[in-house]
Amino acid sequence: MKKRVYIAVVTLALASLFAGCGKKSADAAVSVKDDVVEFVNEELPAAKADHDNAIGIYNAYFAGSSDQDLDAFKTSLQDTAIPAMENCITTISNIEVATDEVKALKDSYLQSVQKECEAMKMVVSAIDGENADYLTQADSLIAEAATLRSDYQTKLQAIANEQGIVVNQ
């Protein structure tokens, strides 16, 4: 009887030990190089496709290459661009990274996308209320997003150079 109790206690202790340490051990084994390659080359492209689609819709109107009126532009933002940006934000948020360096990259990229999405929502509000202040605020958000994206690219290039890797941007 003592032998069974002893085996049960040891088994339970080992199970608890492995359950508590498993994630930390796996994360510690991931190098910055592997984490960057996985994040940028494997995980991010799915989110980037949604982002590029949304930004294309947004920029087309402001670049003057669109013949659509404000209501059509508003509809494109509401029905296509903003949902794509929100999907992009969700996708990026759900990406798991293992290193602090890649977490900083992810955060910069995510914040830039969030600012762009917020800017699109401000443009919709400006069209609804014909409030020029909203457009000014949207321009400010786009500028902040560009700064964050530049920060992301600078950090990414520094890590890539340090680690001797090539990443798809």
Rank of each mutant, 00 (worst) to 15 (best):
Q111W: 01
V10I: 12
N87C: 01
V9H: 12
V97K: 15
L77T: 01
K48G: 04
K33L: 05
L105G: 09
A13K: 08
A54F: 00
D133S: 15
V40G: 01
Q169N: 11
D79E: 13
R4P: 00
D34H: 09
S140L: 12
Q169G: 03
D151R: 13
K103W: 03
A47V: 09
M120Q: 03
Q68I: 00
L17E: 05
S16V: 11
V167C: 13
N131M: 05
E118L: 07
C88V: 06
A19G: 07
A126P: 03
A160V: 08
D100C: 10
E101R: 03
K74M: 05
S65D: 01
S65Y: 00
L105N: 14
N168V: 14
A158H: 13
S76Y: 02
A160Y: 08
Q78H: 04
V102Q: 13
A145S: 14
C88R: 00
Y109R: 09
V40T: 06
L110I: 14
K23D: 07
V113I: 15
Y6A: 05
A60Y: 00
S25P: 00
E101I: 04
A29P: 02
C88W: 01
D71M: 11
N59I: 03
K33C: 12
T147M: 09
F39Q: 07
V123I: 14
Y109T: 04
D27Y: 03
G22E: 05
A19C: 05
T11Y: 10
K115I: 03
H51Q: 10
V37T: 15
A29Y: 06
V30E: 06
L14H: 10
L135G: 05
L156K: 14
V32Q: 07
T80H: 08
I55A: 15
V102W: 15
A132L: 07
G129Y: 12
L17C: 12
E144F: 08
R149D: 10
A104V: 03
E96I: 12
A72S: 13
T99D: 03
K33M: 10
E96A: 15
F39T: 06
V167H: 04
T75Q: 06
L12G: 08
M120F: 13
K23F: 06
A132R: 14
C117N: 12
V166G: 03
D128K: 06
L77F: 01
V30M: 00
R149W: 02
K33I: 00
N161A: 12
Q111G: 09
A29V: 08
K24F: 07
S150D: 09
S150L: 05
I92K: 12
T99E: 05
R149K: 11
N161S: 15
A60M: 05
T154S: 14
K106I: 05
T99H: 02
A28I: 05
S93R: 13
C21Y: 07
V36G: 03
D133Q: 15
V102I: 14
Q111H: 09
L135P: 00
T91F: 10
R4C: 01
E86W: 06
T80L: 03
K2H: 06
K121I: 06
E162L: 11
Q111K: 13
